[in-house]
Every structure is written in structure tokens, then in C-alpha cells.
Design a protein around this nucleic acid. Structure first.
Length: 410
RNA sequence: GCCGGGGUGGGGUAGUUGGUCAUCCUAGAGGAUUGUGGAUCCUCCGACCCGGGUUCGAAUCUCGGCCCCGGCCCCA
């Protein structure tokens, strides 16, 4: 038997309803902040993704050549595509642009808990606003979105300039190595690297910076950083808005294109792959031949949020099983249309079952049965049965529709 | 790419000193029951992940592969 490709998943209706419910919550928060949805191609020129990340990432992407010999890749993330799209289509649109997306991405990696080869990201990009207010609003949006899902998480906010300022005298390659050590809390590796550079004087301040959760202390450790005032304003705004977060100056994010403020969200019950959100301010457009527009954005790892939330009970919605005899079938079709026109999920027998068997099936799949036999066909009324309470009555169609519509949780 | 644990009908399982038609529950289809239910009874459907090896004989032992789960690496 054929299996699905490694790292992919099938979603049955129950699970899809849960996913859609969470997706709609995210969409609604983004909408309220003014973010409008965009959509980019599922695959792009390979170059779009290698331009900033190097050839190394080819190993972790689905790369292929089309019949015209073009080198393409399934998108491993969406920010780069959105910025490409901005340059191609929307450079002159009034700033700032607030865009969001919900789409699947592909990475050729070893699957494990919360990591799949096809996965979904809900992301937002704020393009063209280079202010503390923009940074703060983006974090607020992230916080509100995660809150809306109900997931339990921790939000960490940091800024790259603190660490960059401490290591600014080192060569770029060494700066990256130091940041990698700190991101992983690998202090032994850090010390070894600093010793090889004869810069053990940095060790104390670097570890102090990574461990502090206090803004004033961080400024004392890192010294004069150019974005001091902006970051202070950002933090002040977050506090004013009541955002729950902690400061963390060890966040390095894997990417070089982040320029300042960075933030990450972590869920508690996910094991090794517990990051559910990542974002920050970045400049990417100039890489793709555009202006050097400042952007700020983040992406939520939708699948990890779903894993963290666990099983979701989908909302109870009214379902009608339309039960009919052969004499009532013509009338039943008319009744079914009326129910469906009223927005009610209505299912008729397709198996040629008798009345009892139809009712038995309805009892498993619906919360109302509407019975149409010869009597109902002649009288024009319908018999409606509440399958939970077993109450049954014969009423006009309009009354039956009203009763079904009134059904809800509780 | 590395380490560990796994893979028996759609779901959940029994079966490993190798040995008749592979167990049970559940789900699904049909019937007893052509104007009223999920009970009961009966029938049907349906599996040893794939391939090689050892053997008279493999779900069981062995090798390789695939896939799943957890961890490492990586994480744009």
C-alpha cells in the first residue's frame, strides 16, 4: 500500500475543523490590526532563498528543475517571497503595508515532534514603518494572536544591538560564532572561542548580558547602543499595552537579516521543538533589487500551536438527518433545499435504507432528524425529532427550521 | 547525517523457546425489523510495513530498506 511521503500528514474532518477554528481566530486578530491577506507561489526561483542564506540551505529544501531547466524550490518560508512580491508589485503602495498570510512551507528535515516536512505558518509583515511604534505594535499583535488561540506560551523580546555592540571589534565570522555559542548557551564553546581570540575580557559581560532580564542592567553591560531610545520606547509601549513578555538579550535568531528588535515565543509542552513564534525587524528588500525598506514581522508555527493545544472539541453545530420513506422522498428533497438555503447542514439517505435504519444512522451523525413520510408529504408539515432528548413533534417547516437554528451549545 | 524505541484488518489489540484455517474489541456494510434510534442476535468486510536470507515451515530468527515516535544536529 502506498504511504504518504515522509514528514507529511493527512487531516481527517475532525482535525481540520479544529485547525480551521484556530486559523480563524488568528485571522480575526490580524484583521482587527489592519492586516490583509496576501498569497505567493508555492514554489519560487531557488535563488530567492539562497541569496541571503547561502548554498547550504539547499540541503534542507525541496529543490527541483522544471521542464524548462529552471531551478526552483518549494518555499521553506514565506517572508522572502512576500518581500519579493512587495518589490515586484507594491513598491509604490502607501506605507505602511500590513500584510498577512497563512500558508504551507516545505523543509527537507528529519521529522520529530512538532516538526514536519510540510508545515503551516501564519505570518505577518509590516513593511515601511521604521519606528518604535511599529516594533511595539508587531509584538502586541503577536501576543494577541497567541492569546486568541488559547495556547500557553512565553514571549521573549530582545535586541541584537546589545550583543553586536559588545563584539563589534571582532571579525564578522567570529561575531557569528560568538552569537551562536550564546544562542545555545554553550559557555564552554564561548570561552574557547574567546581564548583563541585573546578576548577573554568579553566573557563576563557577554554572559551577564545573556542572563540579565533587566533593561537598565542590559544598557550598563552593553554600553552605548545607537537604538537605545527606540528600544526603550518599544518596551514602554509594550508595558503600557499590558503585553506579557520577558526581556532576553541572548536571542540571536539564525538569520543575519534581522537588524534590531527580535522576539520569540515558546510553548511549554512541546519537547525539543518548542518555539512557536519568531520574528523581528529586518531589511531584506535590497537583496532582491528593491529599496532598503525597513520591515518588521513574525511567523507563527501553526502546527506546533495545534500540537500544544492538543485535541480541540469542535463547536457543536446543528446537523439534520433527513429521514424519508419512498413516498416522502419527493417532498423531502424540497424540505432539504429549504433547510440548506437556511444554512443548516442537512444530510439525506443515499444508501436506500429503510426508515428505521435511516434513523439509526441519523442518531450517530446528527442531532435532529426530520421525518418525511406519506403523512408529511400529504399534510405539508414535517416531523422533527430531537435526537438527544427523543422529543418529537409535527410542525410547519418554518417552525422546524427555527427550532434547528435555535440549537446551540448548552 | 547520528542515537534509541517501534510497525499485526480503518482504529485499538493477543500471539516471540519458529508449527493447523492468526485472537479479541471497536468501526463499517447487510439482515432479523418497509413509519421511528444507539440494545440484542446473525452474516459479511478486513491485517502480520516491504524485500532478501535461514528453515520442511517465519508475524516470530536474521540482514537491508521504508515509515512512525522520542532525542541530537539544524532550525531561514
Amino acid at each position: 500500500m502506498l504511504q504518504k511521503p515522509r514528514g507529511t500528514r493527512d487531516f481527517l474532518p475532525d482535525e481540520m475543523e479544529g485547525r480551521r477554528a484556530v486559523e480563524m481566530k488568528l485571522r480575526e486578530v490580524a484583521r482587527c490590526y489592519g492586516y490583509r491577506e496576501v498569497c505567493t507561489p508555492e514554489f519560487e526561483d531557488l535563488e530567492l532563498f539562497t541569496m541571503r542564506s547561502g548554498e547550504g540551505i539547499i540541503e534542507e529544501m525541496y529543490v527541483f528543475e522544471d521542464k524548462g531547466g529552471r531551478k526552483l524550490a518549494l518555499r521553506p518560508e514565506i517572508t522572502a517571497a512576500v518581500i519579493r512580491m512587495y518589490i515586484n508589485e507594491a513598491k509604490v503602495a502607501p506605507k505602511p503595508l500590513r500584510w498577512c498570510y497563512f500558508a504551507d512551507c516545505f523543509r527537507y528535515e528529519r521529522p520529530q515532534k512538532g516538526r514536519y516536512r510540510q508545515f503551516w505558518q501564519f505570518g505577518v509583515e509590516l513593511i515601511g514603518a521604521d519606528t518604535a511604534a511599529a516594533d511595539a505594535e508587531t509584538i502586541m499583535l503577536a501576543s494577541d494572536m497567541l492569546n486568541a488561540t488559547g495556547v500557553t506560551y512565553e514571549l521573549k523580546v530582545g535586541h541584537l544591538s546589545f550583543m553586536k555592540n559588545l563584539v563589534k571589534d571582532l571579525e564578522p565570522a567570529m561575531q557569528r560564532r560568538v552569537r551562536a555559542h550564546l544562542d545555545k548557551k554553550d559557555y564552554e564553546g564561548l570561552n574557547a572561542t574567546l581564548e583563541s581570540l585573546n578576548r577573554t575580557d568579553l566573557a563576563a559581560s557577554l554572559t551577564a548580558l545573556v542572563n540579565t532580564r533587566d533593561l537598565v542592567e542590559a544598557f550598563e553591560i552593553a554600553g552605548a547602543i545607537p537604538e537605545k531610545e527606540r528600544f526603550e520606547q518599544t518596551i514602554k509601549s509594550l508595558d503600557a499595552a499590558g503585553v506579557k513578555y520577558s526581556l532576553n538579550f541572548g536571542i540571536a535568531r539564525g538569520l543575519d537579516y534581522y537588524t534590531g528588535m527580535v522576539f520569540e515565543g515558546f510553548a511549554e509542552n512541546l519537547g525539543a521543538e518548542n518555539q512557536i513564534l519568531g520574528g523581528g525587524t529586518y531589511r531584506l528588500a535590497h537583496l532582491f533589487g528593491g529599496d532598503d525598506v525597513a520591515s518588521c514581522g513574525f511567523a507563527i508555527g501553526f502546527d506546533r500551536v495545534m500540537v500544544s493545544l492538543g485535541d480541540i472539541k469542535s463547536a457543536i453545530v446543528p446537523v439534520v438527518g433527513l429521514v424519508c420513506t419512498s413516498e416522502g422522498r419527493t417532498r423531502a428533497l424540497v424540505v432539504a433545499k429549504a433547510l440548506r438555503d437556511a444554512g443548516i447542514r442537512t444530510e439525506m439517505d443515499l444508501m436506500g435504507r429503510g426508515l428505521g435504519a435511516q434513523l439509526a444512522h441519523a442518531a450517530k451523525t446528527a442531532n435532529f432528524a426530520i421525518v418525511i413520510g406519506q403523512r408529511e408529504a400529504e399534510s405539508g408539515q414535517v416531523t422533527i425529532k430531537n435526537l438527544l432528548t427523543a422529543e418529537q413533534k409535527t410542525v410547519d417547516l418554518a417552525a422546524a427550521i427555527a427550532e434547528v437554528r435555535a440549537f446551540g451549545p448548552g
